[in-house]
């Protein structure tokens, strides 16, 4: 079996969740890889757009920022923040946003703002940017996280981006018309949300780990009863990702030195 890195299987796992025809709200980093690899493999009709206003750029070179001049080249339309962000809530489209955060809770609410309080701040993150908007208005959200107890917390220090709020039908009761997190893709596996309770559960774990280890890295109780092992990346997936999507490994980072599969 071919070896692969955590970054590679994260990009591929998130890419597998994309439907052909989706309108993808991408950030940079892993979300760029996931969106691009899905387009090249199974979702050629998916469209990538950026909150900055670049809609369907050629992406001949990987952008390193959503304001990278590379998101402005051979686009369908070059527009503005207002225009791009308003696309998120268009009811006609399955808009899927890729987001990351510093903290996540069991309902997929995200913190990307601060730890502590405004009066007594302990840590500062950049702020929500467009993530709160995507979490509020998109059809669905796919979240990337490093799987650590200090990030998967019982209670967020600050709720920047609304997920399923307090679970159940809380999101709809609050007045959101649609949306909510679909999946959380981490370096250990893929979490999804229970249909009824909207609580996070382990859906897939990578062949490098096991459900108990994933639960141990989670700061709240994680249901692992439904977990199954992920399909390892196929040769095609790895070839497209490495040779076509990020040949310079700007985002992928170093090639795997030893096999991480066991």
């Amino acid at each position: 079996m071919e070896s692969y890195t955590a970054t590679e299987i994260m990009a591929l796992s998130a890419g597998r969740l994309v439907h052909n025809g989706d309108i993808l709200f991408a950030g940079t980093g892993l979300s760029m890889l996931a969106a691009t690899v899905s387009k090249r493999i199974h979702a050629p009709e998916a469209t990538v757009f950026f909150e900055t206003g670049g809609i369907d750029p050629s992406l001949d070179e990987l952008p390193l920022a959503v304001a990278d001049p590379r998101v402005m080249v051979r686009t369908s339309v070059n527009t503005s923040l207002a225009d791009a962000l308003s696309l998120l809530c268009h009811p006609k489209f399955r808009t899927i946003a890729f987001l990351g955060a510093a903290q996540i809770d069991c309902y997929g609410n995200l913190n990307s703002t601060l730890m502590g309080t405004y009066e007594n701040p302990q840590q500062r993150f950049p702020g929500s940017g467009g993530a709160c908007d995507a979490a509020s208005m998109a059809y669905g959200v796919i979240i990337f996280m490093q799987h650590q107890r200090r990030r998967f917390v019982e209670k967020l220090d600050y709720l920047s981006s609304p997920g399923w709020l307090t679970g159940g039908d809380a999101r709809r009761r609050a007045g959101f018309k649609r949306g909510g997190p679909i999946a959380v893709v981490t370096n250990l596996g893929v979490m999804k949300f229970d249909e009824q309770t909207k609580k996070m559960y382990l859906d897939e774990y990578y062949p490098i780990t096991n459900p108990e280890k994933v639960a141990a890295e989670t700061g709240f109780h994680l249901d692992i009863s439904r977990a199954r092992e992920s399909l390892p990346p196929s040769d095609t997936e790895l070839t497209v990702l490495r040779q076509d999507v990020d040949p310079q490994r700007l985002i992928l980072g170093p090639m795997p030195v030893t096999s991480i599969t066991q």
């Binding site: 207002a82 962000l85 929500s128 709160c132 908007d133 600050y158 920047s160 609304p162």
Partner: peptide, 29 residues
């Protein structure tokens, strides 16, 4: 949020007394 700020600039530009959105409901923002 980004949309909040952009809508606020837009409201300023258009002479609107305020602007309303669904973005950020129930958030700490």
């Amino acid at each position: 949020s980004n949309y909040h700020m952009v809508l606020r600039f837009m409201a300023g530009a258009m002479g609107l007394p305020f602007v309303a959105t669904k973005s950020g409901i129930e958030s700490d923002i």
